[in-house]
Design a protein around this nucleic acid. Sequence first.
DNA 1: GAAACTATGCGTCAAGTACT
DNA 2: AGTACTTGACGCATAGTTTC
Length: 366
Amino acid sequence: MYLARSYCGRVQKGQMTMDTMESQQDGSVTDSVAENESAHMQNQTGQNSIPTLTQVSVAGSGTGRGSPAVTLVQLPSGQTVHVQGIIQTPQPSVIQSPQIQTVQVRRIIMYQTDLSIILSCFKSHSNILIISVVKLCFRKILNELSSDVPGVPKIEEEKSEEEGTPPNIATMAVPTSIYQTSTGQYIAIAQGGTIQISNPGSDGVQGLQALTMTNSGAPPPGATIVQYAAQSADGTQQFFVPGSQVVVQDQVVNCLYKLVAFCFIAAATGDMPTYQIRAPTTALPQGVVMAASPGSLHSPQQLAEEATRKRELRLMKNREAAKECRRRKKEYVKCLESRVAVLEVQNKKLIEELETLKDICSPKTD
DNA sequence: GAAACTATGCGTCAAGTACT
DNA sequence: AGTACTTGACGCATAGTTTC
Protein backbone atom coordinates (compact mmCIF):
# COMPACT_ATOMS: atom_id res chain seq x y z
CA MET A 1 0.00 0.00 0.00
CA TYR A 2 1.24 3.41 -0.89
CA LEU A 3 0.97 6.56 1.10
CA ALA A 4 0.69 9.57 -1.06
CA ARG A 5 0.21 13.24 -0.51
CA SER A 6 -2.73 14.72 -2.27
CA TYR A 7 -2.37 18.17 -3.80
CA CYS A 8 -4.06 19.67 -0.80
CA GLY A 9 -1.38 18.37 1.51
CA ARG A 10 -3.32 15.59 3.17
CA VAL A 11 -1.97 12.05 3.34
CA GLN A 12 -4.19 9.55 1.60
CA LYS A 13 -4.04 5.83 1.38
CA GLY A 14 -4.31 3.80 -1.78
CA GLN A 15 -3.10 6.53 -4.07
CA MET A 16 0.20 6.96 -5.81
CA THR A 17 0.89 10.23 -7.47
CA MET A 18 3.68 11.18 -9.82
CA ASP A 19 5.17 13.25 -7.09
CA THR A 20 5.41 10.33 -4.70
CA MET A 21 6.81 7.98 -7.26
CA GLU A 22 9.65 10.33 -8.03
CA SER A 23 10.35 11.11 -4.44
CA GLN A 24 10.57 7.42 -3.72
CA GLN A 25 13.17 7.08 -6.37
CA ASP A 26 15.58 9.81 -5.47
CA GLY A 27 14.29 10.99 -2.11
CA SER A 28 14.98 14.61 -2.88
CA VAL A 29 11.82 16.58 -3.34
CA THR A 30 13.07 20.12 -3.09
CA ASP A 31 11.82 21.46 -6.36
CA SER A 32 9.08 23.90 -7.09
CA VAL A 33 6.33 21.35 -6.66
CA ALA A 34 7.32 20.49 -3.14
CA GLU A 35 7.61 24.16 -2.31
CA ASN A 36 4.29 24.86 -3.89
CA GLU A 37 2.63 22.07 -1.99
CA SER A 38 4.03 23.50 1.18
CA ALA A 39 2.53 26.81 0.18
CA HIS A 40 -0.78 25.09 -0.38
CA MET A 41 -0.73 23.67 3.06
CA GLN A 42 0.15 26.99 4.58
CA ASN A 43 -2.56 28.65 2.61
CA GLN A 44 -5.11 26.17 3.81
CA THR A 45 -4.04 26.61 7.37
CA GLY A 46 -4.36 30.32 6.95
CA GLN A 47 -7.84 29.99 5.56
CA ASN A 48 -8.97 28.11 8.61
CA SER A 49 -7.32 30.37 11.11
CA ILE A 50 -10.20 32.79 11.65
CA PRO A 51 -12.81 30.64 13.31
CA THR A 52 -14.46 33.50 15.11
CA LEU A 53 -15.57 35.25 11.95
CA THR A 54 -19.21 35.09 11.20
CA GLN A 55 -20.16 35.94 7.68
CA VAL A 56 -23.28 36.97 5.88
CA SER A 57 -23.79 37.70 2.24
CA VAL A 58 -25.56 40.84 1.19
CA ALA A 59 -27.06 41.29 -2.20
CA GLY A 60 -25.31 43.80 -4.34
CA SER A 61 -22.92 44.22 -7.20
CA GLY A 62 -19.71 45.91 -8.14
CA THR A 63 -16.22 45.33 -6.95
CA GLY A 64 -15.28 45.30 -3.31
CA ARG A 65 -14.42 48.63 -1.86
CA GLY A 66 -13.07 49.98 1.33
CA SER A 67 -10.69 48.53 3.84
CA PRO A 68 -11.51 46.58 6.98
CA ALA A 69 -12.74 49.08 9.52
CA VAL A 70 -13.15 48.41 13.19
CA THR A 71 -16.19 50.13 14.59
CA LEU A 72 -16.65 50.67 18.27
CA VAL A 73 -20.04 50.38 19.87
CA GLN A 74 -20.27 51.80 23.32
CA LEU A 75 -22.91 50.25 25.52
CA PRO A 76 -24.75 52.08 28.25
CA SER A 77 -22.86 50.01 30.78
CA GLY A 78 -19.61 51.37 29.47
CA GLN A 79 -18.63 48.22 27.68
CA THR A 80 -17.15 48.66 24.25
CA VAL A 81 -17.84 46.25 21.43
CA HIS A 82 -15.54 45.97 18.47
CA VAL A 83 -17.25 45.36 15.16
CA GLN A 84 -15.03 44.73 12.19
CA GLY A 85 -16.34 44.96 8.67
CA ILE A 86 -14.49 43.22 5.88
CA ILE A 87 -15.57 43.53 2.28
CA GLN A 88 -14.50 40.72 0.03
CA THR A 89 -14.60 40.01 -3.67
CA PRO A 90 -16.98 37.72 -5.53
CA GLN A 91 -18.70 35.10 -3.47
CA PRO A 92 -22.02 33.33 -3.81
CA SER A 93 -25.04 34.65 -2.09
CA VAL A 94 -27.04 33.14 0.71
CA ILE A 95 -29.60 35.93 0.60
CA GLN A 96 -31.99 36.36 -2.24
CA SER A 97 -33.51 39.71 -2.83
CA PRO A 98 -37.25 39.74 -3.31
CA GLN A 99 -36.82 42.53 -5.84
CA ILE A 100 -34.19 40.82 -7.95
CA GLN A 101 -34.78 37.18 -8.73
CA THR A 102 -31.17 36.17 -9.14
CA VAL A 103 -28.79 38.28 -7.17
CA GLN A 104 -25.18 38.38 -8.16
CA VAL A 105 -23.42 38.94 -4.91
CA ARG A 106 -19.97 40.26 -5.35
CA ARG A 107 -18.87 40.74 -1.82
CA ILE A 108 -19.28 39.33 1.57
CA ILE A 109 -19.48 41.60 4.52
CA MET A 110 -18.10 39.95 7.55
CA TYR A 111 -18.28 41.33 11.00
CA GLN A 112 -16.07 40.20 13.76
CA THR A 113 -17.35 41.24 17.09
CA ASP A 114 -17.35 40.23 20.67
CA LEU A 115 -19.86 37.47 20.41
CA SER A 116 -19.94 36.88 24.11
CA ILE A 117 -21.47 40.30 24.63
CA ILE A 118 -24.01 39.69 21.90
CA LEU A 119 -24.80 36.33 23.41
CA SER A 120 -25.25 37.85 26.83
CA CYS A 121 -27.57 40.45 25.33
CA PHE A 122 -29.62 37.69 23.78
CA LYS A 123 -29.70 35.73 26.98
CA SER A 124 -30.71 38.78 28.97
CA HIS A 125 -33.46 39.51 26.44
CA SER A 126 -31.81 42.74 25.47
CA ASN A 127 -32.05 43.87 21.91
CA ILE A 128 -30.29 47.18 22.37
CA LEU A 129 -27.02 45.88 21.07
CA ILE A 130 -28.68 44.21 18.14
CA ILE A 131 -30.37 47.43 17.17
CA SER A 132 -27.13 49.33 17.60
CA VAL A 133 -25.39 46.94 15.27
CA VAL A 134 -28.22 47.35 12.82
CA LYS A 135 -27.81 51.07 13.13
CA LEU A 136 -24.11 50.77 12.50
CA CYS A 137 -24.41 48.47 9.56
CA PHE A 138 -27.50 49.76 7.88
CA ARG A 139 -26.15 52.89 6.30
CA LYS A 140 -22.94 51.21 5.22
CA ILE A 141 -24.59 48.23 3.59
CA LEU A 142 -27.44 50.13 2.02
CA ASN A 143 -25.05 52.64 0.56
CA GLU A 144 -23.08 49.74 -0.84
CA LEU A 145 -26.24 48.51 -2.44
CA SER A 146 -27.39 51.88 -3.63
CA SER A 147 -24.20 52.51 -5.53
CA ASP A 148 -24.56 49.29 -7.45
CA VAL A 149 -28.18 48.27 -7.64
CA PRO A 150 -30.65 50.63 -9.24
CA GLY A 151 -33.69 51.13 -7.13
CA VAL A 152 -32.01 50.69 -3.80
CA PRO A 153 -32.23 53.97 -1.98
CA LYS A 154 -29.17 55.75 -0.73
CA ILE A 155 -29.08 56.63 2.94
CA GLU A 156 -27.78 59.94 4.13
CA GLU A 157 -27.54 60.30 7.85
CA GLU A 158 -28.62 63.62 9.23
CA LYS A 159 -25.63 65.69 10.16
CA SER A 160 -27.00 66.60 13.55
CA GLU A 161 -26.69 62.99 14.56
CA GLU A 162 -23.06 62.49 13.74
CA GLU A 163 -21.54 65.91 14.25
CA GLY A 164 -18.95 65.83 16.95
CA THR A 165 -18.73 62.09 16.87
CA PRO A 166 -15.54 60.51 15.57
CA PRO A 167 -15.92 58.41 12.44
CA ASN A 168 -16.82 54.79 12.98
CA ILE A 169 -17.83 55.46 16.57
CA ALA A 170 -21.45 55.13 17.56
CA THR A 171 -22.85 55.46 21.00
CA MET A 172 -26.16 54.57 22.54
CA ALA A 173 -26.59 58.01 24.05
CA VAL A 174 -28.77 59.32 21.23
CA PRO A 175 -32.29 58.06 21.76
CA THR A 176 -33.38 58.15 18.12
CA SER A 177 -31.46 58.17 14.87
CA ILE A 178 -33.17 59.51 11.80
CA TYR A 179 -32.09 58.71 8.28
CA GLN A 180 -33.49 59.86 5.01
CA THR A 181 -33.29 57.85 1.85
CA SER A 182 -32.85 59.26 -1.60
CA THR A 183 -36.43 58.28 -2.33
CA GLY A 184 -37.66 60.47 0.47
CA GLN A 185 -38.31 57.78 3.04
CA TYR A 186 -37.50 58.52 6.63
CA ILE A 187 -36.03 55.79 8.78
CA ALA A 188 -35.98 56.25 12.52
CA ILE A 189 -34.21 53.85 14.86
CA ALA A 190 -35.47 54.41 18.35
CA GLN A 191 -33.79 53.40 21.58
CA GLY A 192 -36.56 50.97 22.34
CA GLY A 193 -35.54 48.88 19.38
CA THR A 194 -38.13 50.13 16.96
CA ILE A 195 -37.26 50.90 13.39
CA GLN A 196 -39.79 53.14 11.71
CA ILE A 197 -39.97 53.81 8.01
CA SER A 198 -42.26 56.50 6.73
CA ASN A 199 -42.95 57.05 3.10
CA PRO A 200 -43.33 60.60 1.88
CA GLY A 201 -47.05 61.18 1.91
CA SER A 202 -49.29 64.17 1.74
CA ASP A 203 -49.69 64.32 5.47
CA GLY A 204 -46.24 63.03 6.31
CA VAL A 205 -47.64 60.04 8.15
CA GLN A 206 -48.90 57.90 5.33
CA GLY A 207 -47.05 54.70 4.77
CA LEU A 208 -45.59 54.59 8.23
CA GLN A 209 -43.99 51.26 8.89
CA ALA A 210 -42.45 50.01 12.09
CA LEU A 211 -40.14 47.13 12.69
CA THR A 212 -39.79 46.12 16.32
CA MET A 213 -37.87 43.35 17.92
CA THR A 214 -38.85 42.60 21.45
CA ASN A 215 -38.36 39.86 23.95
CA SER A 216 -40.82 41.23 26.45
CA GLY A 217 -43.87 39.26 27.41
CA ALA A 218 -41.91 36.12 28.29
CA PRO A 219 -41.22 34.74 24.84
CA PRO A 220 -40.39 31.12 24.44
CA PRO A 221 -36.72 30.27 24.90
CA GLY A 222 -34.76 31.07 21.82
CA ALA A 223 -37.57 32.98 20.18
CA THR A 224 -37.34 36.67 19.53
CA ILE A 225 -40.55 38.33 18.56
CA VAL A 226 -40.32 40.33 15.38
CA GLN A 227 -43.14 42.77 14.95
CA TYR A 228 -43.87 44.50 11.73
CA ALA A 229 -46.53 47.12 11.48
CA ALA A 230 -47.46 49.01 8.37
CA GLN A 231 -49.85 51.91 8.35
CA SER A 232 -51.21 52.87 5.00
CA ALA A 233 -54.06 54.92 3.71
CA ASP A 234 -56.37 51.93 3.72
CA GLY A 235 -55.67 50.88 7.26
CA THR A 236 -53.07 49.39 9.53
CA GLN A 237 -51.45 46.01 9.15
CA GLN A 238 -49.70 44.28 11.95
CA PHE A 239 -47.80 41.03 12.11
CA PHE A 240 -46.54 39.57 15.33
CA VAL A 241 -44.01 36.95 14.52
CA PRO A 242 -42.63 34.74 17.29
CA GLY A 243 -39.46 33.82 15.52
CA SER A 244 -41.10 31.85 12.79
CA GLN A 245 -41.96 33.62 9.60
CA VAL A 246 -42.54 37.16 8.53
CA VAL A 247 -43.49 38.66 5.24
CA VAL A 248 -42.45 42.10 4.29
CA GLN A 249 -42.98 43.88 1.04
CA ASP A 250 -41.11 47.11 1.36
CA GLN A 251 -37.65 47.09 -0.09
CA VAL A 252 -36.12 49.11 2.69
CA VAL A 253 -37.75 46.95 5.31
CA ASN A 254 -36.39 43.94 3.52
CA CYS A 255 -32.97 45.42 3.77
CA LEU A 256 -33.48 46.01 7.46
CA TYR A 257 -34.62 42.46 7.89
CA LYS A 258 -31.46 41.27 6.27
CA LEU A 259 -29.50 43.27 8.77
CA VAL A 260 -31.53 42.00 11.65
CA ALA A 261 -31.06 38.49 10.36
CA PHE A 262 -27.36 39.17 10.13
CA CYS A 263 -27.33 40.07 13.76
CA PHE A 264 -29.14 36.85 14.55
CA ILE A 265 -26.62 34.90 12.53
CA ALA A 266 -23.77 36.72 14.19
CA ALA A 267 -25.14 35.91 17.57
CA ALA A 268 -26.01 32.38 16.61
CA THR A 269 -22.47 31.11 16.89
CA GLY A 270 -22.23 28.60 19.64
CA ASP A 271 -25.31 27.44 21.42
CA MET A 272 -27.56 30.24 20.35
CA PRO A 273 -30.54 29.58 18.12
CA THR A 274 -29.92 29.84 14.45
CA TYR A 275 -31.89 32.14 12.23
CA GLN A 276 -31.49 32.01 8.49
CA ILE A 277 -32.70 34.06 5.59
CA ARG A 278 -34.05 31.80 2.90
CA ALA A 279 -35.43 32.24 -0.53
CA PRO A 280 -39.08 33.14 -0.57
CA THR A 281 -41.50 30.27 -0.77
CA THR A 282 -44.09 30.06 -3.49
CA ALA A 283 -46.78 31.12 -1.09
CA LEU A 284 -44.74 34.12 -0.07
CA PRO A 285 -43.33 35.28 -3.35
CA GLN A 286 -41.95 38.59 -2.19
CA GLY A 287 -41.12 37.86 1.39
CA VAL A 288 -38.13 37.20 3.50
CA VAL A 289 -38.47 34.16 5.66
CA MET A 290 -36.77 33.67 8.94
CA ALA A 291 -36.55 30.11 10.19
CA ALA A 292 -36.50 29.46 13.87
CA SER A 293 -34.01 27.36 15.73
CA PRO A 294 -34.12 23.56 15.85
CA GLY A 295 -34.78 23.76 19.55
CA SER A 296 -38.16 25.29 18.94
CA LEU A 297 -39.18 22.85 16.20
CA HIS A 298 -42.06 20.58 16.98
CA SER A 299 -44.25 19.76 14.02
CA PRO A 300 -43.20 17.32 11.29
CA GLN A 301 -43.31 20.17 8.84
CA GLN A 302 -40.80 22.13 10.87
CA LEU A 303 -38.61 19.08 11.21
CA ALA A 304 -38.75 18.57 7.49
CA GLU A 305 -37.85 22.20 6.95
CA GLU A 306 -34.92 21.82 9.28
CA ALA A 307 -33.76 18.73 7.43
CA THR A 308 -34.05 20.60 4.16
CA ARG A 309 -32.12 23.50 5.62
CA LYS A 310 -29.36 21.19 6.77
CA ARG A 311 -29.19 19.53 3.40
CA GLU A 312 -29.00 22.85 1.61
CA LEU A 313 -26.25 23.93 3.93
CA ARG A 314 -24.35 20.73 3.32
CA LEU A 315 -24.75 21.02 -0.42
CA MET A 316 -23.61 24.61 -0.34
CA LYS A 317 -20.52 23.69 1.64
CA ASN A 318 -19.72 20.81 -0.66
CA ARG A 319 -20.25 23.02 -3.68
CA GLU A 320 -17.68 25.45 -2.40
CA ALA A 321 -15.37 22.63 -1.42
CA ALA A 322 -15.57 21.15 -4.89
CA LYS A 323 -14.73 24.49 -6.43
CA GLU A 324 -11.76 24.89 -4.15
CA CYS A 325 -10.66 21.34 -4.81
CA ARG A 326 -10.75 21.90 -8.56
CA ARG A 327 -8.84 25.10 -8.21
CA ARG A 328 -6.14 23.34 -6.22
CA LYS A 329 -6.04 20.51 -8.68
CA LYS A 330 -5.53 22.85 -11.61
CA GLU A 331 -2.77 24.60 -9.74
CA TYR A 332 -1.18 21.29 -8.93
CA VAL A 333 -1.31 20.15 -12.53
CA LYS A 334 0.30 23.42 -13.59
CA CYS A 335 3.06 22.84 -11.12
CA LEU A 336 3.59 19.33 -12.41
CA GLU A 337 3.72 20.58 -15.97
CA SER A 338 6.30 23.19 -15.12
CA ARG A 339 8.25 20.57 -13.25
CA VAL A 340 8.19 18.34 -16.30
CA ALA A 341 9.55 21.19 -18.38
CA VAL A 342 12.37 21.79 -15.92
CA LEU A 343 13.27 18.13 -15.74
CA GLU A 344 13.25 17.81 -19.51
CA VAL A 345 15.74 20.64 -19.77
CA GLN A 346 17.85 19.04 -17.05
CA ASN A 347 17.69 15.70 -18.81
CA LYS A 348 18.74 17.24 -22.07
CA LYS A 349 21.69 18.93 -20.41
CA LEU A 350 22.77 15.74 -18.70
CA ILE A 351 22.60 13.82 -21.96
CA GLU A 352 24.72 16.44 -23.63
CA GLU A 353 27.15 16.34 -20.74
CA LEU A 354 27.33 12.59 -20.96
CA GLU A 355 28.06 12.74 -24.64
CA THR A 356 30.81 15.25 -24.02
CA LEU A 357 32.38 13.08 -21.32
CA LYS A 358 32.14 10.08 -23.59
CA ASP A 359 34.00 11.96 -26.27
CA ILE A 360 36.69 13.00 -23.83
CA CYS A 361 37.14 9.63 -22.18
CA SER A 362 36.89 7.37 -25.16
CA PRO A 363 40.30 6.91 -26.94
CA LYS A 364 40.31 7.94 -30.50
CA THR A 365 40.98 5.07 -32.78
CA ASP A 366 42.36 7.03 -35.67
C1' DG B 1 -25.66 26.33 -41.46
C1' DA B 2 -26.43 22.04 -38.95
C1' DA B 3 -24.75 18.07 -36.70
C1' DA B 4 -21.09 15.83 -34.30
C1' DC B 5 -17.31 16.13 -31.43
C1' DT B 6 -14.36 18.04 -27.75
C1' DA B 7 -13.08 20.78 -23.79
C1' DT B 8 -14.29 22.89 -19.70
C1' DG B 9 -16.77 23.88 -15.61
C1' DC B 10 -20.26 22.94 -12.27
C1' DG B 11 -23.24 20.38 -8.89
C1' DT B 12 -23.90 16.28 -6.57
C1' DC B 13 -22.95 11.83 -4.50
C1' DA B 14 -20.17 8.67 -2.20
C1' DA B 15 -16.08 6.97 -0.18
C1' DG B 16 -12.02 7.79 2.36
C1' DT B 17 -9.58 10.36 5.88
C1' DA B 18 -8.61 13.33 9.93
C1' DC B 19 -10.13 15.07 14.03
C1' DT B 20 -12.62 15.35 18.42
C1' DA C 1 -18.96 7.18 16.87
C1' DG C 2 -19.92 11.37 14.89
C1' DT C 3 -18.58 15.21 12.15
C1' DA C 4 -16.19 17.88 8.77
C1' DC C 5 -13.25 17.93 4.95
C1' DT C 6 -11.32 16.24 0.53
C1' DT C 7 -11.63 14.30 -3.81
C1' DG C 8 -12.81 10.82 -7.59
C1' DA C 9 -16.62 9.83 -10.42
C1' DC C 10 -20.73 10.83 -12.80
C1' DG C 11 -24.06 13.50 -15.31
C1' DC C 12 -25.26 17.81 -17.25
C1' DA C 13 -24.74 22.37 -19.55
C1' DT C 14 -22.26 25.44 -22.36
C1' DA C 15 -18.88 27.13 -25.64
C1' DG C 16 -15.70 26.27 -29.17
C1' DT C 17 -14.08 23.43 -33.06
C1' DT C 18 -14.47 20.21 -36.78
C1' DT C 19 -16.85 17.80 -40.38
C1' DC C 20 -20.28 17.41 -43.83
